[in-house]
């Protein structure tokens, strides 16, 4: 969900934030044309870096058509074809957040086509794993598809929104493992260790034989949607 209040950057700056990484995401509704994505990618690569800079914050972003809109394969292919125009902009980190939402065949097809684009240019990849009861199956499917693309280096991939039942699979495959903290229905701060979050995370990485880990908050308006 795109939600950007006029004072968001000011509050981030007051909290000591020096940089943000914004993945391309769903707009809260399914966009009707590739032109909508062109405007969105301009927002991510031109507008937001300038707004963030006014508060001393560096703005980075990831580009893709997200899994929620990947059911529309024709539109997705138009958008993927447009992405290379923007990949060399200075604040673009790579392809993301791609992934699965309901683990459908169309989502998997478009995920693989994003992987193809990323592999052809050796781009970093940020991956969204599904939520709730779709997560375990979707994460395993994503790891299968990554494994099938031999050009992708695991250390250039972050598989995000990991939870207790998916951490080990991600780390064992050599990818960065992201744990996203949400206010209520998903991985809450309490689940991640509350005030001792860092120690909990370190303990999990140790338990799973070490690995690449990241913890990040999801403060978006739809964070628990």
């Amino acid at each position: 969900m795109i939600s950007r209040l006029t004072d968001d950057y000011e509050r981030l700056a007051h909290a000591g934030c020096v940089a943000v990484s914004e993945p391309a995401f769903w707009a809260g509704f399914d966009r009707g044309s590739a032109l909508s994505f062109r405007d969105y990618f301009r927002q991510l690569t031109e507008v937001e870096p300038k707004r963030a800079a006014q508060y001393g914050i560096q703005h980075f972003c990831w580009l893709c058509i997200n899994a929620k809109e990947a059911e529309n394969v024709a539109l997705s292919r138009e958008v993927i074809a447009m992405i290379p125009e923007f990949l060399d902009k200075p604040n673009v980190l790579g392809i993301g957040e791609i992934g699965l939402n309901k683990n459908t065949k169309n989502e998997a097809t478009i995920f693989c086509e994003h992987l193809e684009l990323a592999a052809s240019r050796d781009e970093l990849i940020l991956i969204h794993t599904p939520h709730l009861d779709d997560k375990y199956k979707g994460t395993r499917m994503i790891l299968d598809m990554l494994r099938n693309e031999s050009r992708i280096k695991p250390e250039r991939v972050l598989v995000d929104h990991a939870e207790e039942h998916t951490i080990k699979h991600i780390l064992d495959a050599g990818y960065w493992c992201g744990m996203t903290l949400y206010p209520i229905t998903k991985c809450t701060p309490q689940r991640s260790g509350g005030h001792d979050r860092a120690a909990w995370h370190a303990a999990h990485l140790r338990e799973f034989g070490g690995g690449l880990g990241a913890v990040e908050p999801d403060g978006g308006a739809g964070a628990d949607a």
Binding site: N103, A108, D133, K135, Y136, K137, R140, D144, N148, H165
Partner: peptide, 25 residues
């Protein structure tokens, strides 16, 4: 101490290793 993982799996869809990935070789 893996209760959280077990509960997660209880509430999860089943993963089938034989599913047909679009990029399977």
């Amino acid at each position: 101490a893996d209760r959280a993982e077990r509960v997660q799996k209880l509430f999860s869809q089943e993963y089938e290793q034989t599913w047909s990935a679009p990029n399977a070789k």
